[in-house]
Design a protein around this nucleic acid. Sequence first.
DNA 1: CAGTGAGCGAGCTTCCGCTTGACTT
Length: 793
Amino acid sequence: MEDNLVIVESPAKAKTIEKFLGKEYVVKSSFGHIRDLSKKKLGIDIDNNYQPNYEVSPDKKKIVSELKKLTKNAKTVWIASDEDREGEAIAWHLFDELKLNKDNTKRIVFHEITKKAILDSIKNPRDINNDIVNSQQARRILDRLVGFELSPILWKKIKPSLSAGRVQSVAVRLLVEREREIMSFNSESFYKVSAIFNVANNNYELKADLSKRFDTKEEVLKFLENSKTSKHKVVEVIKKPTKKSPLAPFTTSTLQQEASRKFNFSVSQTMMVAQKLYESGKITYMRTDSVNLSDFAMSEAKNVIVSNFGDEYLKVRKFRTKSKSAQEAHEAIRPTSLNKFEVSGSEAEKKLYKLIWKRTIASQMAEAKFEKTNINISISNSDYKYLATGEILKFDGFLKVYEILENGDVAKSLLPPISENDDLNVNIINAIQRFTHHPPRYTEAALVKKLEELGIGRPSTYAPIISTVQKRGYVLKENREGEKRNFNFISLVNNNIVDDIKTEITGAEKSKLFPTDIGIVVNDFLVENFEDIIDFNFTASVEKEFDEIAKGKLVWSKMIDKFYKSFHNKVEITLENSERKTGERKLGVDKASGKEVFVRIGRYGPMAQIGKSDDEEKPRYAKLTKEQHLETITLKEALDLFRLPRVVGKYEDKEITVAIGRFGPYVKHDNKFFSLKKGIDDPYTLREDRAIEIIEEKREYDRKKTIKIFDQDVPVKILNGRWGPYISYNKKNYKIPKDVVPESLSYEACLEIINKVVKPKNTKAKSKTKSKTTVKTKSKAKAKPKKKTKKKE
DNA sequence: CAGTGAGCGAGCTTCCGCTTGACTT
């Protein structure tokens, strides 16, 4: 019916474009890729020049048939998928799967969603570029080969259901190597000396740092002793102008980093909020590697800046991407209209929008100007110097809207008026013991930044990568409490040296990524056997070849063949020769039994073991706690694990034991479990009287919880729960209607409530599924009218 | 919901990149 059908990737994009184009255009979206290699099988015919076998993805069947219908009636089909490798492939898959005609199919591209850009693109259609399509096929096939050949090796050699891949395995490697660096890091202490002076004949104070850091306390004491008689004088005051420039507009990764730093958002949280803003038309597309702003956005920014802050705040800038892997199919992330200073929506949406608005506006603003002052202070009887620095803001420029928050970028104090040759009197000198710090653990956003620098992963995959490595059990996002540490604080006050010890908290971590034992063992295995794939530069080097393919200078199947021959060879050798890898480590000998103690990964995770499995006597096993690790656990700690379960006494003629289970430490009595109070009870020292107390507390709680029990074959219980009274029957829970007094219910009345719920709701009344598996059986999905808004026409 | 860890073998798991859905309590 309609003359023109335009196909884009995203439905939100389709909606806006439809507004720009006239009535004779219908704009639909493909929802990304419509086909992929077979999900279960390899999907690649190795012996037939690596011919890929594509299938329409199950969740895309509907949209594909809808598009098929529409293309039949359209005079011209415009394929407007993104202008990057994946977009070109999507165009070709559409062309192929929809069985389109070359004569009336046109490929168009645009980098910004503006009326001008789209009309221009319609005027300049082209053909699908097969070289680029082939480069995408090579990328896809290589990733499938690597993933589907490496993962099964792990199932055999380490543990079932594990996975490996070009991207995720490097992400894990980064974390493992950083963790090792941290483990082997030896913290050293040094002393930082600073002094507070009184400016002679004046009331000003001046704080300055000594140019020298001392390694030992002896040096500090000697210096302070010396300082008792020294004279201090200003020898130099240097003033110089400095400036700071705004950062480029947001890309996916910089948005994730900044939202993490400023709001503590996880990367997936950032993406979910951004998606909302995008879908409601408030920001441009949020998965991008481009820092480019459209002409429209730049002129809008100009107007906003000039009319709100004045001409002197404007500085038009074009940013260029630094990362080589960028494909720049979209704009930077920016508000669709910079005239909108804030938006409605959830708190998170408001916050993130404001951040994007500020960053975009700031990028078109003048740099901030400062005057920096350095003051050098000499010491009469020493070659060392004191140095004081200060910074005065002369012109705020972009800082008017965008605060940069960097580590250690504490607001520098204003310096008092001071001139050269001024004499200074020492008020106090402090020497504080400090410690060198290990390199930091990665946050989610920091890992994304690192991956981007390495050219690994794409804006659309940063968040999924983080969740995959956690789902596989390679990585844990955790907080760690810090430890107390003493440090030396030595002062010279009133010509007296005061030597003091203070304490501080160190090593606290918040929302950091830690590799697990499994992650470490898998990584070591891959590094040992597949160094070249796990290499930080592997992606970069294959990307070069993909580029060659895209330029038509290299045949994709040849490239794959060269890679696969040597890779597959290594796969076979590894399957054949390498040992099962369990991260086994011998810790020593158990004095009590004389048997060897070691740790390894077992079927259920990391564990400790006393004695070999081929010994006559069965070995004893114990699970490591969450805080313990194969690489760092000591013999003593491992042996401690075997002190449980422990019999602590008797109560009501039944034994009381204490142990640690899957959900933490517990007391067991008469086959019932009672959790220990976190932070109060210790399973290793818990005594009989306290154990009984815990049992009684739980019983009291249960008494309050239970309203009534009908003791039938299948007991019916009326209980008090978090959401009020309910009926528990056959492991399922049923709500009691509000107008019913629970105490008054009879057995029959309960059954009535139960049956009422079961009947109309059918089988899916109450299944306590924890994981959201997206297995969809189409067969009986017709029940509900699940049409979306189909209100146009 | 909490204890387990030998081996036999069925049948399962897995990659990266594009996109947005839809269950309740």
